[in-house]
Design a protein around this nucleic acid. Sequence first.
DNA 1: AATTTGACTGAGTGCTCAGTCGGTTTTTCT
DNA 2: AGAAAAACCGACTGAGCACTCAGTCAAATT
Lengths: 198, 198
Amino acid sequence: MTRKEAIRYAATVLFAHKGFQETTMQDICKVTGTAEGTIFYHFKSKEGLLMAILEHAKTQILSEYEAAFTGRDFASGLEMMEEAVAHYFRLAGVMEHEFTLLQRQFPHQLAEENPECRSHLAAIYSCLTDIFERVVRAGQADGSMGAFPPRETAMILFAMVDGLLRLKTCNLYDAGALYDELIASCRRMLAKPCDGSC
Amino acid sequence: MTRKEAIRYAATVLFAHKGFQETTMQDICKVTGTAEGTIFYHFKSKEGLLMAILEHAKTQILSEYEAAFTGRDFASGLEMMEEAVAHYFRLAGVMEHEFTLLQRQFPHQLAEENPECRSHLAAIYSCLTDIFERVVRAGQADGSMGAFPPRETAMILFAMVDGLLRLKTCNLYDAGALYDELIASCRRMLAKPCDGSC
DNA sequence: AATTTGACTGAGTGCTCAGTCGGTTTTTCT
DNA sequence: AGAAAAACCGACTGAGCACTCAGTCAAATT
Protein backbone atom coordinates (compact mmCIF):
# COMPACT_ATOMS: atom_id res chain seq x y z
CA MET A 1 0.00 0.00 0.00
CA THR A 2 1.51 3.32 -1.05
CA ARG A 3 1.62 6.32 1.22
CA LYS A 4 -1.11 7.97 -0.77
CA GLU A 5 -3.39 4.96 -0.42
CA ALA A 6 -2.65 4.77 3.30
CA ILE A 7 -3.69 8.39 3.71
CA ARG A 8 -6.87 7.85 1.72
CA TYR A 9 -7.74 4.77 3.73
CA ALA A 10 -7.12 6.44 7.08
CA ALA A 11 -9.20 9.42 6.01
CA THR A 12 -12.02 7.10 4.95
CA VAL A 13 -12.13 5.50 8.38
CA LEU A 14 -11.90 8.81 10.22
CA PHE A 15 -14.40 10.70 8.04
CA ALA A 16 -16.83 7.79 8.34
CA HIS A 17 -16.68 7.54 12.11
CA LYS A 18 -15.89 11.06 13.30
CA GLY A 19 -17.32 13.14 10.46
CA PHE A 20 -15.66 15.41 7.91
CA GLN A 21 -15.41 18.68 9.85
CA GLU A 22 -14.78 16.77 13.06
CA THR A 23 -11.69 15.08 11.60
CA THR A 24 -8.55 17.24 11.50
CA MET A 25 -5.65 16.80 9.18
CA GLN A 26 -3.55 16.13 12.28
CA ASP A 27 -5.79 13.18 13.13
CA ILE A 28 -4.95 11.71 9.75
CA CYS A 29 -1.25 12.44 10.32
CA LYS A 30 -1.26 10.64 13.63
CA VAL A 31 -2.88 7.51 12.20
CA THR A 32 -0.67 7.32 9.14
CA GLY A 33 2.51 8.63 10.75
CA THR A 34 3.03 11.25 8.06
CA ALA A 35 3.63 14.98 8.23
CA GLU A 36 0.86 17.41 7.39
CA GLY A 37 2.65 18.66 4.32
CA THR A 38 2.62 15.17 2.84
CA ILE A 39 -1.15 15.02 2.73
CA PHE A 40 -1.27 18.30 0.85
CA TYR A 41 1.43 17.03 -1.46
CA HIS A 42 -0.82 14.12 -2.50
CA PHE A 43 -4.23 15.82 -2.28
CA LYS A 44 -4.85 19.44 -3.09
CA SER A 45 -7.16 20.08 -0.12
CA LYS A 46 -9.27 18.38 2.52
CA GLU A 47 -12.22 18.46 0.12
CA GLY A 48 -10.01 17.02 -2.62
CA LEU A 49 -9.17 14.15 -0.28
CA LEU A 50 -12.88 13.47 0.19
CA MET A 51 -13.36 13.51 -3.59
CA ALA A 52 -10.62 10.92 -4.00
CA ILE A 53 -12.35 8.75 -1.41
CA LEU A 54 -15.69 9.03 -3.18
CA GLU A 55 -14.17 8.31 -6.56
CA HIS A 56 -12.44 5.23 -5.19
CA ALA A 57 -15.66 4.04 -3.52
CA LYS A 58 -17.56 4.57 -6.75
CA THR A 59 -15.08 2.57 -8.79
CA GLN A 60 -15.06 -0.25 -6.28
CA ILE A 61 -18.84 -0.45 -5.89
CA LEU A 62 -19.48 -0.38 -9.64
CA SER A 63 -16.94 -3.13 -10.32
CA GLU A 64 -18.19 -5.29 -7.45
CA TYR A 65 -21.72 -5.12 -8.85
CA GLU A 66 -20.47 -5.71 -12.36
CA ALA A 67 -18.71 -8.85 -11.12
CA ALA A 68 -21.71 -10.09 -9.17
CA PHE A 69 -24.46 -9.60 -11.73
CA THR A 70 -23.16 -9.72 -15.28
CA GLY A 71 -23.41 -13.02 -17.09
CA ARG A 72 -25.23 -14.71 -14.25
CA ASP A 73 -28.74 -16.00 -14.42
CA PHE A 74 -31.06 -16.82 -11.58
CA ALA A 75 -33.73 -19.45 -11.04
CA SER A 76 -36.31 -16.70 -10.57
CA GLY A 77 -36.67 -12.99 -9.87
CA LEU A 78 -37.13 -13.85 -6.20
CA GLU A 79 -33.80 -15.67 -6.16
CA MET A 80 -32.18 -12.71 -7.86
CA MET A 81 -33.69 -10.41 -5.24
CA GLU A 82 -32.22 -12.55 -2.51
CA GLU A 83 -28.82 -12.35 -4.14
CA ALA A 84 -29.11 -8.57 -4.59
CA VAL A 85 -29.88 -8.07 -0.90
CA ALA A 86 -27.19 -10.53 0.15
CA HIS A 87 -24.68 -8.75 -2.04
CA TYR A 88 -25.62 -5.41 -0.55
CA PHE A 89 -25.00 -6.76 2.95
CA ARG A 90 -21.77 -8.41 1.85
CA LEU A 91 -20.51 -5.18 0.26
CA ALA A 92 -21.52 -3.19 3.32
CA GLY A 93 -19.31 -5.54 5.29
CA VAL A 94 -16.31 -5.54 2.94
CA MET A 95 -16.48 -1.78 2.36
CA GLU A 96 -17.71 -1.00 5.85
CA HIS A 97 -16.11 2.42 6.15
CA GLU A 98 -17.12 3.58 2.69
CA PHE A 99 -20.74 2.62 3.34
CA THR A 100 -20.77 4.34 6.71
CA LEU A 101 -19.37 7.44 5.06
CA LEU A 102 -22.07 7.35 2.39
CA GLN A 103 -24.70 7.15 5.10
CA ARG A 104 -23.55 10.47 6.52
CA GLN A 105 -24.99 13.73 5.25
CA PHE A 106 -21.83 15.62 4.42
CA PRO A 107 -21.24 13.98 1.02
CA HIS A 108 -24.84 14.68 0.00
CA GLN A 109 -24.54 18.22 1.25
CA LEU A 110 -21.34 18.83 -0.63
CA ALA A 111 -22.98 17.36 -3.73
CA GLU A 112 -25.30 20.36 -3.85
CA GLU A 113 -22.47 22.70 -4.77
CA ASN A 114 -19.77 20.40 -6.06
CA PRO A 115 -20.60 18.79 -9.42
CA GLU A 116 -17.82 16.22 -9.15
CA CYS A 117 -19.17 15.05 -5.82
CA ARG A 118 -22.69 15.01 -7.25
CA SER A 119 -21.57 12.86 -10.14
CA HIS A 120 -19.85 10.27 -7.92
CA LEU A 121 -22.86 9.95 -5.64
CA ALA A 122 -25.28 9.74 -8.55
CA ALA A 123 -23.22 6.91 -10.09
CA ILE A 124 -23.14 4.99 -6.81
CA TYR A 125 -26.83 5.35 -6.07
CA SER A 126 -28.04 4.58 -9.54
CA CYS A 127 -25.91 1.45 -9.53
CA LEU A 128 -27.44 0.35 -6.24
CA THR A 129 -31.05 1.15 -7.14
CA ASP A 130 -30.88 -0.07 -10.74
CA ILE A 131 -30.06 -3.57 -9.53
CA PHE A 132 -33.26 -3.64 -7.50
CA GLU A 133 -35.22 -2.38 -10.48
CA ARG A 134 -33.75 -5.12 -12.65
CA VAL A 135 -34.70 -7.60 -9.95
CA VAL A 136 -38.33 -6.50 -10.01
CA ARG A 137 -38.50 -6.55 -13.81
CA ALA A 138 -36.93 -10.00 -13.92
CA GLY A 139 -39.38 -11.27 -11.32
CA GLN A 140 -42.30 -9.90 -13.27
CA ALA A 141 -40.99 -11.38 -16.52
CA ASP A 142 -40.73 -14.88 -15.06
CA GLY A 143 -43.99 -14.58 -13.17
CA SER A 144 -42.56 -14.87 -9.67
CA MET A 145 -43.49 -11.31 -8.72
CA GLY A 146 -46.68 -9.28 -8.85
CA ALA A 147 -47.29 -6.40 -11.24
CA PHE A 148 -45.99 -3.58 -9.06
CA PRO A 149 -44.42 -0.43 -10.51
CA PRO A 150 -40.74 -1.43 -10.91
CA ARG A 151 -38.98 1.83 -10.10
CA GLU A 152 -41.09 2.63 -7.07
CA THR A 153 -40.85 -0.91 -5.76
CA ALA A 154 -37.09 -0.83 -6.27
CA MET A 155 -36.82 2.39 -4.26
CA ILE A 156 -38.83 0.87 -1.43
CA LEU A 157 -36.58 -2.19 -1.44
CA PHE A 158 -33.55 0.05 -1.39
CA ALA A 159 -34.97 2.14 1.46
CA MET A 160 -35.60 -1.05 3.42
CA VAL A 161 -32.09 -2.45 3.06
CA ASP A 162 -30.39 0.90 3.52
CA GLY A 163 -32.64 1.80 6.45
CA LEU A 164 -31.76 -1.46 8.13
CA LEU A 165 -28.04 -0.82 7.76
CA ARG A 166 -28.57 2.64 9.21
CA LEU A 167 -29.97 1.09 12.38
CA LYS A 168 -26.56 -0.45 12.87
CA THR A 169 -24.65 2.75 12.06
CA CYS A 170 -26.69 4.59 14.68
CA ASN A 171 -26.28 1.81 17.27
CA LEU A 172 -30.02 1.21 17.35
CA TYR A 173 -30.12 -2.45 16.33
CA ASP A 174 -27.84 -5.08 14.88
CA ALA A 175 -28.75 -5.24 11.21
CA GLY A 176 -27.26 -8.71 10.76
CA ALA A 177 -29.73 -10.19 13.25
CA LEU A 178 -32.57 -9.07 11.00
CA TYR A 179 -31.16 -10.46 7.78
CA ASP A 180 -33.25 -13.63 7.56
CA GLU A 181 -36.38 -11.79 8.56
CA LEU A 182 -35.63 -9.13 5.97
CA ILE A 183 -35.37 -11.67 3.16
CA ALA A 184 -38.62 -13.31 4.24
CA SER A 185 -40.34 -9.91 4.40
CA CYS A 186 -39.13 -8.98 0.93
CA ARG A 187 -40.36 -12.27 -0.49
CA ARG A 188 -43.84 -11.72 0.93
CA MET A 189 -43.83 -8.15 -0.29
CA LEU A 190 -42.85 -9.03 -3.83
CA ALA A 191 -44.41 -12.42 -4.48
CA LYS A 192 -47.35 -12.57 -6.84
CA PRO A 193 -50.52 -12.43 -4.75
CA CYS A 194 -52.68 -15.54 -4.92
CA ASP A 195 -55.66 -15.38 -7.23
CA GLY A 196 -58.34 -14.94 -4.59
CA SER A 197 -59.47 -18.55 -4.51
CA CYS A 198 -58.55 -18.67 -0.85
CA MET B 1 -42.40 33.17 20.96
CA THR B 2 -39.84 34.20 23.54
CA ARG B 3 -36.27 35.05 22.67
CA LYS B 4 -35.10 31.73 24.07
CA GLU B 5 -37.59 29.78 21.96
CA ALA B 6 -36.59 31.75 18.87
CA ILE B 7 -32.95 30.83 19.44
CA ARG B 8 -33.81 27.17 19.95
CA TYR B 9 -35.93 27.12 16.81
CA ALA B 10 -33.29 28.82 14.67
CA ALA B 11 -30.66 26.43 15.97
CA THR B 12 -32.89 23.45 15.17
CA VAL B 13 -33.21 24.58 11.55
CA LEU B 14 -29.52 25.35 11.19
CA PHE B 15 -28.23 22.22 12.94
CA ALA B 16 -30.60 20.09 10.86
CA HIS B 17 -29.56 21.52 7.51
CA LYS B 18 -25.96 22.61 7.99
CA GLY B 19 -24.84 20.25 10.75
CA PHE B 20 -23.74 20.89 14.31
CA GLN B 21 -20.05 21.70 13.84
CA GLU B 22 -20.82 23.44 10.57
CA THR B 23 -23.19 25.89 12.25
CA THR B 24 -21.52 28.74 14.11
CA MET B 25 -23.01 30.69 16.97
CA GLN B 26 -22.80 33.72 14.70
CA ASP B 27 -25.06 31.98 12.17
CA ILE B 28 -27.68 31.65 14.88
CA CYS B 29 -27.16 35.30 15.87
CA LYS B 30 -27.72 36.47 12.33
CA VAL B 31 -30.96 34.53 11.94
CA THR B 32 -32.41 35.55 15.30
CA GLY B 33 -30.99 39.08 15.36
CA THR B 34 -29.47 38.63 18.81
CA ALA B 35 -26.00 39.19 20.19
CA GLU B 36 -23.74 36.23 20.81
CA GLY B 37 -23.78 36.75 24.55
CA THR B 38 -27.54 36.29 24.61
CA ILE B 39 -27.32 32.69 23.46
CA PHE B 40 -24.89 31.88 26.23
CA TYR B 41 -27.12 33.66 28.69
CA HIS B 42 -29.97 31.26 27.85
CA PHE B 43 -27.96 28.08 27.14
CA LYS B 44 -24.79 27.13 28.92
CA SER B 45 -22.96 25.99 25.78
CA LYS B 46 -23.44 24.97 22.17
CA GLU B 47 -23.88 21.38 23.32
CA GLY B 48 -26.38 22.54 25.94
CA LEU B 49 -28.36 24.19 23.18
CA LEU B 50 -28.44 20.89 21.29
CA MET B 51 -29.64 19.12 24.45
CA ALA B 52 -32.48 21.61 24.79
CA ILE B 53 -33.46 20.93 21.19
CA LEU B 54 -33.46 17.15 21.74
CA GLU B 55 -35.43 17.42 24.95
CA HIS B 56 -38.02 19.58 23.23
CA ALA B 57 -38.24 17.16 20.29
CA LYS B 58 -38.62 14.24 22.67
CA THR B 59 -41.46 15.89 24.58
CA GLN B 60 -43.24 16.83 21.38
CA ILE B 61 -42.90 13.42 19.72
CA LEU B 62 -44.02 11.50 22.81
CA SER B 63 -47.08 13.69 23.28
CA GLU B 64 -48.03 13.53 19.59
CA TYR B 65 -47.95 9.73 19.70
CA GLU B 66 -49.82 9.72 22.98
CA ALA B 67 -52.53 11.83 21.39
CA ALA B 68 -52.71 9.73 18.23
CA PHE B 69 -52.82 6.23 19.74
CA THR B 70 -54.26 6.21 23.24
CA GLY B 71 -57.91 5.38 23.58
CA ARG B 72 -58.36 4.70 19.88
CA ASP B 73 -59.25 1.37 18.40
CA PHE B 74 -58.82 0.20 14.84
CA ALA B 75 -60.80 -2.06 12.55
CA SER B 76 -57.79 -4.37 12.26
CA GLY B 77 -54.06 -4.54 12.82
CA LEU B 78 -53.57 -3.65 9.16
CA GLU B 79 -55.63 -0.48 9.60
CA MET B 80 -53.60 0.39 12.67
CA MET B 81 -50.40 -0.15 10.69
CA GLU B 82 -51.64 2.23 8.04
CA GLU B 83 -52.38 4.85 10.66
CA ALA B 84 -48.95 4.35 12.29
CA VAL B 85 -47.17 4.90 8.98
CA ALA B 86 -49.41 7.84 8.11
CA HIS B 87 -48.73 9.38 11.48
CA TYR B 88 -45.01 8.97 11.04
CA PHE B 89 -45.17 10.81 7.71
CA ARG B 90 -47.43 13.46 9.17
CA LEU B 91 -45.07 14.04 12.11
CA ALA B 92 -42.07 14.14 9.80
CA GLY B 93 -43.85 16.94 7.99
CA VAL B 94 -44.96 18.92 11.03
CA MET B 95 -41.61 18.51 12.81
CA GLU B 96 -39.58 18.57 9.63
CA HIS B 97 -36.44 20.10 11.09
CA GLU B 98 -36.42 17.94 14.21
CA PHE B 99 -36.71 14.78 12.10
CA THR B 100 -33.97 15.91 9.74
CA LEU B 101 -31.76 16.57 12.75
CA LEU B 102 -32.47 13.12 14.17
CA GLN B 103 -31.46 11.59 10.84
CA ARG B 104 -28.00 13.09 11.17
CA GLN B 105 -25.24 11.25 12.97
CA PHE B 106 -24.09 13.89 15.41
CA PRO B 107 -26.83 13.29 17.97
CA HIS B 108 -26.14 9.56 17.92
CA GLN B 109 -22.43 10.19 18.19
CA LEU B 110 -22.83 12.55 21.11
CA ALA B 111 -25.08 9.96 22.76
CA GLU B 112 -22.08 7.69 23.15
CA GLU B 113 -20.50 9.97 25.72
CA ASN B 114 -23.37 12.12 26.92
CA PRO B 115 -25.92 10.19 29.01
CA GLU B 116 -28.52 12.95 28.79
CA CYS B 117 -28.34 12.85 25.02
CA ARG B 118 -28.51 9.06 25.09
CA SER B 119 -31.61 9.15 27.22
CA HIS B 120 -33.45 11.58 24.93
CA LEU B 121 -32.68 9.54 21.83
CA ALA B 122 -33.60 6.27 23.50
CA ALA B 123 -36.96 7.71 24.52
CA ILE B 124 -37.67 8.95 21.02
CA TYR B 125 -36.68 5.74 19.26
CA SER B 126 -38.44 3.41 21.63
CA CYS B 127 -41.58 5.47 21.22
CA LEU B 128 -41.34 5.19 17.44
CA THR B 129 -40.52 1.48 17.30
CA ASP B 130 -42.88 0.40 20.07
CA ILE B 131 -45.83 1.64 18.05
CA PHE B 132 -44.88 -0.66 15.19
CA GLU B 133 -44.48 -3.55 17.58
CA ARG B 134 -47.94 -2.88 19.00
CA VAL B 135 -49.24 -2.80 15.45
CA VAL B 136 -47.85 -6.24 14.68
CA ARG B 137 -49.14 -7.71 17.93
CA ALA B 138 -52.58 -6.24 17.34
CA GLY B 139 -52.64 -7.61 13.79
CA GLN B 140 -51.70 -11.05 15.02
CA ALA B 141 -54.30 -10.93 17.76
CA ASP B 142 -57.12 -10.11 15.35
CA GLY B 143 -55.86 -12.52 12.71
CA SER B 144 -55.11 -9.94 10.01
CA MET B 145 -51.36 -10.56 10.13
CA GLY B 146 -49.16 -13.62 9.89
CA ALA B 147 -47.19 -15.08 12.81
CA PHE B 148 -43.97 -13.12 12.30
CA PRO B 149 -41.66 -12.22 15.21
CA PRO B 150 -43.14 -8.90 16.44
CA ARG B 151 -40.01 -7.01 17.48
CA GLU B 152 -38.02 -7.94 14.40
CA THR B 153 -40.91 -7.21 12.08
CA ALA B 154 -41.41 -3.87 13.82
CA MET B 155 -37.76 -2.97 13.28
CA ILE B 156 -38.03 -3.81 9.59
CA LEU B 157 -41.14 -1.67 9.28
CA PHE B 158 -39.33 1.15 11.04
CA ALA B 159 -36.28 0.77 8.82
CA MET B 160 -38.54 0.95 5.76
CA VAL B 161 -40.34 4.12 6.76
CA ASP B 162 -37.23 5.81 8.11
CA GLY B 163 -35.18 4.72 5.11
CA LEU B 164 -37.77 6.19 2.80
CA LEU B 165 -37.68 9.53 4.58
CA ARG B 166 -33.91 9.48 4.33
CA LEU B 167 -34.15 9.31 0.56
CA LYS B 168 -35.81 12.70 0.74
CA THR B 169 -33.29 14.14 3.20
CA CYS B 170 -30.47 13.11 0.86
CA ASN B 171 -32.25 14.46 -2.22
CA LEU B 172 -32.38 11.00 -3.76
CA TYR B 173 -36.13 10.60 -4.18
CA ASP B 174 -39.32 12.28 -3.07
CA ALA B 175 -40.59 10.14 -0.23
CA GLY B 176 -44.15 11.44 -0.55
CA ALA B 177 -44.45 10.04 -4.07
CA LEU B 178 -43.83 6.55 -2.67
CA TYR B 179 -46.38 6.81 0.14
CA ASP B 180 -49.20 4.80 -1.49
CA GLU B 181 -46.80 2.18 -2.77
CA LEU B 182 -45.24 1.93 0.69
CA ILE B 183 -48.59 1.25 2.35
CA ALA B 184 -49.42 -1.39 -0.26
CA SER B 185 -46.00 -3.03 0.20
CA CYS B 186 -46.41 -3.11 3.98
CA ARG B 187 -49.86 -4.70 3.64
CA ARG B 188 -48.47 -7.48 1.43
CA MET B 189 -45.53 -7.96 3.76
CA LEU B 190 -47.65 -8.27 6.87
CA ALA B 191 -50.86 -9.90 5.71
CA LYS B 192 -51.47 -13.49 6.72
CA PRO B 193 -50.29 -15.73 3.87
CA CYS B 194 -53.03 -17.73 2.20
CA ASP B 195 -53.32 -21.35 3.26
CA GLY B 196 -51.76 -22.95 0.24
CA SER B 197 -54.97 -23.90 -1.51
CA CYS B 198 -53.93 -21.74 -4.41
C1' DA C 1 -37.10 57.81 43.94
C1' DA C 2 -33.84 54.40 44.74
C1' DT C 3 -32.51 49.69 44.25
C1' DT C 4 -32.49 45.24 42.53
C1' DT C 5 -33.05 41.92 39.06
C1' DG C 6 -33.18 39.77 34.57
C1' DA C 7 -32.38 40.27 29.66
C1' DC C 8 -29.24 41.58 26.58
C1' DT C 9 -24.86 43.43 24.29
C1' DG C 10 -20.50 43.06 21.45
C1' DA C 11 -15.59 43.72 21.67
C1' DG C 12 -12.15 40.81 23.28
C1' DT C 13 -9.49 36.16 24.18
C1' DG C 14 -7.21 32.13 23.50
C1' DC C 15 -7.27 28.25 20.86
C1' DT C 16 -7.79 25.18 16.85
C1' DC C 17 -7.34 24.27 12.24
C1' DA C 18 -6.57 24.07 6.93
C1' DG C 19 -3.24 25.17 4.16
C1' DT C 20 1.83 27.04 2.94
C1' DC C 21 6.63 27.03 2.21
C1' DG C 22 11.51 26.49 2.41
C1' DG C 23 14.20 22.90 3.07
C1' DT C 24 15.64 17.76 3.50
C1' DT C 25 15.64 12.99 2.23
C1' DT C 26 14.84 9.28 -0.94
C1' DT C 27 14.34 7.47 -5.41
C1' DT C 28 15.16 7.38 -10.28
C1' DC C 29 17.66 8.31 -14.28
C1' DT C 30 21.94 9.09 -16.96
C1' DA D 1 28.76 8.84 -9.00
C1' DG D 2 26.23 12.84 -9.90
C1' DA D 3 22.13 15.22 -11.18
C1' DA D 4 17.35 15.64 -11.38
C1' DA D 5 12.93 14.59 -9.82
C1' DA D 6 9.70 12.99 -6.58
C1' DA D 7 8.35 12.35 -1.87
C1' DC D 8 8.35 14.06 2.53
C1' DC D 9 8.86 17.10 6.56
C1' DG D 10 7.15 20.33 10.30
C1' DA D 11 7.32 25.07 11.89
C1' DC D 12 4.57 28.76 10.67
C1' DT D 13 0.41 31.71 9.33
C1' DG D 14 -3.89 33.79 9.30
C1' DA D 15 -8.66 33.02 9.65
C1' DG D 16 -12.46 31.43 12.25
C1' DC D 17 -14.36 29.67 16.26
C1' DA D 18 -16.73 29.00 21.15
C1' DC D 19 -16.99 31.26 24.96
C1' DT D 20 -16.19 35.42 28.42
C1' DC D 21 -16.97 39.56 30.69
C1' DA D 22 -17.69 44.23 31.96
C1' DG D 23 -21.17 46.84 31.25
C1' DT D 24 -26.04 48.92 29.38
C1' DC D 25 -30.89 49.14 29.67
C1' DA D 26 -35.57 48.51 31.09
C1' DA D 27 -38.85 46.53 34.01
C1' DA D 28 -40.11 45.07 38.67
C1' DT D 29 -39.75 45.79 43.65
C1' DT D 30 -39.28 48.40 47.86
